[in-house]
Design a protein around this nucleic acid. Structure first.
Length: 155
DNA sequence: GCCAACGTTGGC
DNA sequence: GCCAACGTTGGC
């Protein structure tokens, strides 16, 4: 899952512990949330549009999908006049903080790793909720652990 | 701040 | 159902 690094960084998720992931207004991203994310699933937490884009840690799916109330709030930027309460167009899930990497795995490093070049991140960088294969998930965890180890030795 | 890529909308 | 126009995202 992606978030703008200066709008909702992982530090904020850590502070809040859990948050409703509201405001997703892309059909493909919504479908991924609705159909692919199950309670307990782990998610890579990616900062985009910042000066250090990359994976910052791990979040956990903390609820089943339910309607995103902001679609009915005419004062919200996420308001959608097409949506009906009896048939909501947009849903969300709750996201819980799981862990923060000691050092983020930056986009440039993800791009350098040949074993990751099939990631949706590179094929469809705009998709805000995208599937990650178990192999890629494990690989990024390993890169994060390596970076943490380097950091530890430096101290 | 620019621009490429891409999702969405709306006219036909 | 197609496709041009448009808006938004995201990397640089």
């Amino acid at each position: 899952m992606k978030t703008e690094g200066d709008v909702y960084p992982i530090s904020q998720l850590k502070k809040e512990g859990k948050t409703p992931w509201s405001g997703v207004r892309s059909f493909a991203a919504r479908n991924n949330m609705r159909d692919k994310m199950c309670v307990g699933d782990l998610c890579l937490f990616y900062h985009s549009s910042s000066n250090a884009n990359g994976v910052y840690g791990i979040a956990r799916v903390a609820s089943a999908p339910y309607p995103d109330s902001s679609q009915f709030d005419s004062k919200s930027p996420y308001f959608d006049a097409r949506s009906r309460t009896e048939n909501p167009m947009w849903i969300l899930i709750d996201i819980a903080f799981e862990s923060e990497y000691a050092k983020p795995v930056l986009l440039e490093e993800l791009k350098k790793d040949p074993s990751l070049n099939e990631m949706v991140l590179f094929k469809n960088s705009r998709l805000s909720i995208q599937p990650v294969s178990e192999i890629h998930f494990e690989r990024i965890g390993l890169l994060a652990a390596e970076r943490a180890e380097v950091l530890r030795r430096e101290r």
